Each structure stands twice: as structure tokens, then as C-alpha cells.
Measured scan of single mutants.
Amino acid sequence: PPDDERKKAEKAARSGNEEKAREILERLGYSEDEARELAKRLR
């Protein structure tokens, strides 16, 4: 489910793995720019 994926992205971002967070968010349908912004904010 998307919620689980989003949680994974948050966890990745918090542990400093912004790249992985961005990949997950892009898979969820965010654009590259949106995903980058979100990954930064989740950190």
C-alpha cells in the first residue's frame, strides 16, 4: 500500500538516505522535483 511505501521513504530520509527516499517517492507517482523536495522535508 502507498502508506507503507511512504513510511519507508520517511524512514530512509530520516536515516540520511535521501536518494532511496526519493526513489520510493518517485515510484509512488511523485515527479522527480516533488520527490526531492519531499525527501528533504522528511529528513
Rank of each mutant, 00 (worst) to 15 (best):
Y30K: 01
R41C: 13
L25N: 01
A35V: 04
A13V: 05
G16L: 08
L38M: 11
G16V: 04
L42R: 01
E37N: 08
R22V: 15
S15A: 15
R14V: 11
A39E: 10
G16H: 07
L38D: 00
E18C: 15
L42V: 06
D33Y: 06
L28C: 09
A39S: 03
E23D: 08
N17H: 09
L25R: 02
D3R: 10
S15V: 09
K7P: 05
A39P: 00
R41D: 12
A21R: 05
E19S: 11
E26M: 15
E26T: 09
R36W: 10
E37H: 07
G29A: 00
S31L: 02
K8A: 14
K7E: 12
K8V: 11
L25Y: 10
E18N: 05
K11C: 14
A9Q: 03
R14H: 09
E10P: 05
E18Q: 07
E34K: 03
E32M: 02
E26S: 06
N17T: 05
R14G: 04
A21Q: 04
A9C: 08
N17F: 11
E18W: 10
L42T: 04
P2H: 14
D3E: 13
L28S: 01
R6W: 15
E26I: 15
P2V: 14
P1E: 14
E32F: 03
P1A: 14
R27N: 10
N17G: 04
S31V: 00
K40Q: 10
R41M: 10
L25S: 00
R36G: 06
E18D: 08
R14D: 05
R22D: 00
K20H: 09
R43S: 14
Y30N: 01
E10N: 06
A12S: 07
A12V: 08
K7G: 08
A35C: 05
R6H: 14
E26R: 12
R36T: 08
K20M: 13
A35P: 00
Y30I: 04
L25D: 00
A9S: 04
E34F: 06
R41P: 00
A9L: 06
G16E: 04
E37K: 08
G29D: 02
G16R: 05
A9I: 06
E23G: 07
K8G: 07
A12N: 04
L42N: 01
K11W: 02
K7A: 12
A12K: 04
R6L: 15
E34I: 06
E32G: 02
R41E: 12
E5R: 09
L28N: 02
I24N: 01
K8Y: 07
Y30P: 01
E18H: 06
G16M: 06
L38N: 01
A13K: 02
I24H: 05
K11S: 12
E23I: 10
K7M: 12
P1H: 14
Y30A: 05
D4Y: 12
R41V: 03
I24T: 01
E18V: 14
E34A: 09
K11F: 04
R22A: 08
K40H: 14
I24A: 04
R41S: 07
G29H: 01
P1Y: 15
K8I: 10
E37D: 13
E10V: 13
A39W: 00
R41T: 06
A21F: 08
A13S: 04
I24Q: 02
A9T: 03
A12L: 12
P1F: 14
G16A: 04
K11P: 03
K40I: 05
E18Y: 11
A12Q: 09
S31P: 08
R14Q: 10
L42A: 07
I24E: 02
R43H: 15
R27T: 08
S31F: 01
K20G: 09
K20R: 10
A12T: 06
A39N: 01
A35M: 04
A13R: 02
K20D: 06
G29V: 00
R6N: 05
A9Y: 04
L38S: 01
E32K: 09
D33L: 08
L38R: 02
A21I: 12
L25I: 01
R27I: 07
I24S: 02
P1W: 14
G16F: 05
P2F: 15
N17P: 03
R41K: 13
E19K: 13
E34R: 03
E23W: 01
A9K: 03
D3I: 12
E10K: 10
D3A: 11
K7R: 13
R22T: 06
E23Y: 01
E26K: 12
R41G: 04
S15Q: 13
P1S: 15
